[in-house]
Amino acid sequence: MDKAHGVDFAHANAYYDAEQVPRPGHFYLPVACQHCRDAPCVKSCPTGATWTEPDGIVVVDYDWCIGCRCCMSSCPYGARHFNWADPSVPTEAFNPDTHFLGNRPRGRGVVEKCTFCIQRVRNGRYPACVEVCPVGSRKFGNLLDPASEIRYILEHKRVFVLKAELATHPRFYYFYGS
Protein backbone atom coordinates (compact mmCIF):
# COMPACT_ATOMS: atom_id res chain seq x y z
CA MET A 1 0.00 0.00 0.00
CA ASP A 2 1.49 3.31 -0.96
CA LYS A 3 0.88 6.56 0.81
CA ALA A 4 -1.05 8.01 -2.07
CA HIS A 5 -4.00 5.78 -1.36
CA GLY A 6 -3.59 4.89 2.30
CA VAL A 7 -5.36 1.81 3.54
CA ASP A 8 -7.30 0.84 0.46
CA PHE A 9 -8.89 -2.60 0.65
CA ALA A 10 -10.42 -2.21 -2.78
CA HIS A 11 -7.07 -2.08 -4.53
CA ALA A 12 -4.57 -3.49 -2.07
CA ASN A 13 -3.02 -6.92 -2.24
CA ALA A 14 -4.92 -9.05 0.25
CA TYR A 15 -1.77 -11.06 0.97
CA TYR A 16 1.27 -9.68 2.68
CA ASP A 17 3.94 -10.83 0.28
CA ALA A 18 7.00 -9.23 1.83
CA GLU A 19 10.24 -11.06 1.11
CA GLN A 20 11.13 -10.98 4.76
CA VAL A 21 8.99 -10.64 7.87
CA PRO A 22 9.48 -8.44 9.77
CA ARG A 23 10.74 -6.14 7.05
CA PRO A 24 13.78 -4.12 8.10
CA GLY A 25 12.88 -0.77 9.58
CA HIS A 26 9.22 -1.65 10.00
CA PHE A 27 7.24 -1.94 13.19
CA TYR A 28 4.09 -4.03 13.15
CA LEU A 29 1.09 -2.95 15.19
CA PRO A 30 -2.36 -4.15 14.16
CA VAL A 31 -4.93 -1.39 14.64
CA ALA A 32 -8.62 -2.20 14.47
CA CYS A 33 -11.61 -0.53 16.04
CA GLN A 34 -10.66 0.10 19.67
CA HIS A 35 -14.29 -0.10 20.86
CA CYS A 36 -13.72 3.00 22.96
CA ARG A 37 -15.70 3.54 26.14
CA ASP A 38 -15.92 7.22 25.17
CA ALA A 39 -16.10 6.70 21.43
CA PRO A 40 -15.71 9.88 19.31
CA CYS A 41 -17.50 8.16 16.44
CA VAL A 42 -20.63 7.55 18.52
CA LYS A 43 -20.72 11.19 19.58
CA SER A 44 -20.31 12.53 16.07
CA CYS A 45 -22.83 10.37 14.18
CA PRO A 46 -25.77 12.66 13.30
CA THR A 47 -28.34 9.91 12.84
CA GLY A 48 -27.44 7.72 15.78
CA ALA A 49 -26.50 4.92 13.39
CA THR A 50 -23.59 3.86 15.58
CA TRP A 51 -23.73 3.12 19.29
CA THR A 52 -22.23 1.04 22.07
CA GLU A 53 -23.95 -2.23 22.87
CA PRO A 54 -24.45 -3.19 26.55
CA ASP A 55 -21.55 -5.65 26.27
CA GLY A 56 -19.22 -2.88 25.05
CA ILE A 57 -19.09 -3.59 21.32
CA VAL A 58 -19.41 -0.42 19.24
CA VAL A 59 -21.69 -1.28 16.34
CA VAL A 60 -23.04 0.31 13.16
CA ASP A 61 -26.51 -0.14 11.75
CA TYR A 62 -25.70 -0.03 8.05
CA ASP A 63 -29.32 0.72 7.22
CA TRP A 64 -29.17 3.93 9.24
CA CYS A 65 -25.79 5.17 8.12
CA ILE A 66 -26.12 8.05 5.66
CA GLY A 67 -22.41 7.97 4.81
CA CYS A 68 -21.48 11.45 6.06
CA ARG A 69 -18.12 10.15 7.35
CA CYS A 70 -18.22 12.26 10.52
CA CYS A 71 -17.25 9.11 12.39
CA MET A 72 -14.29 8.53 10.09
CA SER A 73 -13.05 12.08 10.59
CA SER A 74 -13.42 11.90 14.35
CA CYS A 75 -11.83 8.45 14.83
CA PRO A 76 -8.19 8.91 15.90
CA TYR A 77 -7.39 5.29 15.02
CA GLY A 78 -8.47 5.28 11.38
CA ALA A 79 -10.59 2.30 12.25
CA ARG A 80 -13.58 3.04 10.07
CA HIS A 81 -13.88 2.26 6.41
CA PHE A 82 -16.18 3.63 3.77
CA ASN A 83 -17.81 1.42 1.14
CA TRP A 84 -17.02 3.20 -2.09
CA ALA A 85 -18.81 0.65 -4.28
CA ASP A 86 -21.56 -1.94 -4.10
CA PRO A 87 -20.47 -5.28 -2.67
CA SER A 88 -19.55 -7.85 -5.27
CA VAL A 89 -19.29 -11.11 -3.34
CA PRO A 90 -19.83 -14.28 -5.40
CA THR A 91 -22.83 -16.26 -4.16
CA GLU A 92 -20.70 -19.24 -3.26
CA ALA A 93 -18.36 -17.07 -1.22
CA PHE A 94 -21.16 -15.50 0.76
CA ASN A 95 -21.41 -16.46 4.43
CA PRO A 96 -25.08 -17.10 5.20
CA ASP A 97 -24.39 -17.00 8.93
CA THR A 98 -24.78 -13.25 9.45
CA HIS A 99 -25.62 -10.81 12.18
CA PHE A 100 -27.64 -7.66 11.62
CA LEU A 101 -24.91 -5.51 13.22
CA GLY A 102 -22.01 -7.58 11.94
CA ASN A 103 -21.01 -9.38 8.80
CA ARG A 104 -24.03 -8.87 6.59
CA PRO A 105 -23.31 -7.26 3.22
CA ARG A 106 -22.84 -3.52 3.44
CA GLY A 107 -24.16 -1.40 0.61
CA ARG A 108 -22.44 1.40 -1.23
CA GLY A 109 -22.12 4.64 0.68
CA VAL A 110 -22.07 3.38 4.26
CA VAL A 111 -19.33 3.15 6.84
CA GLU A 112 -18.24 -0.11 8.43
CA LYS A 113 -15.69 -1.25 10.96
CA CYS A 114 -14.55 -4.15 13.11
CA THR A 115 -17.42 -5.51 15.19
CA PHE A 116 -15.35 -7.98 17.22
CA CYS A 117 -17.12 -10.49 14.94
CA ILE A 118 -20.37 -9.95 16.77
CA GLN A 119 -21.98 -12.84 14.87
CA ARG A 120 -19.39 -15.17 16.44
CA VAL A 121 -18.82 -13.78 19.93
CA ARG A 122 -22.52 -13.61 20.70
CA ASN A 123 -22.55 -17.35 20.07
CA GLY A 124 -19.62 -18.13 22.35
CA ARG A 125 -16.94 -18.18 19.66
CA TYR A 126 -13.78 -16.13 19.32
CA PRO A 127 -13.52 -13.34 16.76
CA ALA A 128 -12.07 -14.64 13.50
CA CYS A 129 -8.75 -12.81 13.97
CA VAL A 130 -8.25 -14.41 17.38
CA GLU A 131 -9.09 -17.84 16.05
CA VAL A 132 -6.89 -17.59 13.01
CA CYS A 133 -3.77 -16.06 14.59
CA PRO A 134 -1.14 -18.82 14.30
CA VAL A 135 0.92 -17.68 17.30
CA GLY A 136 -1.94 -16.86 19.66
CA SER A 137 -0.95 -13.24 19.99
CA ARG A 138 -4.55 -12.11 20.13
CA LYS A 139 -6.75 -12.71 23.11
CA PHE A 140 -10.43 -12.05 23.62
CA GLY A 141 -12.60 -12.37 26.69
CA ASN A 142 -14.90 -10.91 29.26
CA LEU A 143 -13.26 -8.10 31.20
CA LEU A 144 -15.79 -8.53 34.00
CA ASP A 145 -14.86 -12.16 34.60
CA PRO A 146 -11.97 -12.28 37.15
CA ALA A 147 -11.09 -15.79 36.03
CA SER A 148 -10.82 -14.94 32.34
CA GLU A 149 -7.58 -15.08 30.40
CA ILE A 150 -7.95 -11.46 29.44
CA ARG A 151 -8.12 -10.40 33.08
CA TYR A 152 -4.97 -12.41 33.83
CA ILE A 153 -3.14 -10.60 31.05
CA LEU A 154 -4.28 -7.19 32.19
CA GLU A 155 -3.23 -7.93 35.76
CA HIS A 156 0.11 -9.62 35.07
CA LYS A 157 1.48 -8.28 31.78
CA ARG A 158 2.80 -4.95 30.63
CA VAL A 159 -0.26 -3.42 28.99
CA PHE A 160 -1.00 -0.19 27.18
CA VAL A 161 -3.78 1.32 25.13
CA LEU A 162 -3.26 3.26 21.94
CA LYS A 163 -3.25 7.05 22.33
CA ALA A 164 -4.28 6.94 25.97
CA GLU A 165 -3.86 10.71 26.16
CA LEU A 166 -6.94 11.17 23.97
CA ALA A 167 -9.14 9.78 26.76
CA THR A 168 -11.13 7.57 24.44
CA HIS A 169 -10.64 4.71 26.92
CA PRO A 170 -10.33 1.83 24.45
CA ARG A 171 -11.41 -1.72 25.19
CA PHE A 172 -8.62 -2.87 22.91
CA TYR A 173 -5.38 -3.42 24.84
CA TYR A 174 -1.86 -4.11 23.68
CA PHE A 175 0.35 -6.30 25.84
CA TYR A 176 3.93 -7.47 25.80
CA GLY A 177 4.15 -11.24 25.71
CA SER A 178 7.28 -11.42 27.77
Binding site: P46, G48, W64, I66, C68, R69, F82
Partner: peptide
Protein backbone atom coordinates in the same frame (compact mmCIF):
# COMPACT_ATOMS: atom_id res chain seq x y z
CA UNK B 1 -21.05 14.56 0.29
CA UNK B 2 -23.10 11.82 1.93
CA UNK B 3 -22.63 8.26 0.81
CA UNK B 4 -26.40 7.96 0.57
CA UNK B 5 -27.70 11.49 -0.05
CA UNK B 6 -31.24 10.27 -0.68
CA UNK B 7 -31.44 9.66 3.07
CA UNK B 8 -30.23 13.15 3.89
CA UNK B 9 -33.58 14.01 5.44
CA UNK B 10 -32.76 11.67 8.32
CA UNK B 11 -30.80 14.47 9.91
CA UNK B 12 -34.03 16.38 10.54
CA UNK B 13 -35.65 15.61 13.88
CA UNK B 14 -39.29 15.33 12.94
CA UNK B 15 -41.91 12.84 14.09
CA UNK B 16 -41.43 9.74 11.98
CA UNK B 17 -42.10 6.04 11.78
CA UNK B 18 -38.48 4.99 11.71
CA UNK B 19 -38.53 3.25 15.03
CA UNK B 20 -36.44 4.00 18.08
CA UNK B 21 -33.58 5.61 16.18
CA UNK B 22 -33.52 9.38 16.41
CA UNK B 23 -31.08 12.10 15.51
CA UNK B 24 -28.04 12.46 17.71
Amino acid sequence: HMGRPWFGYWVFPYPNTRGPLWVN
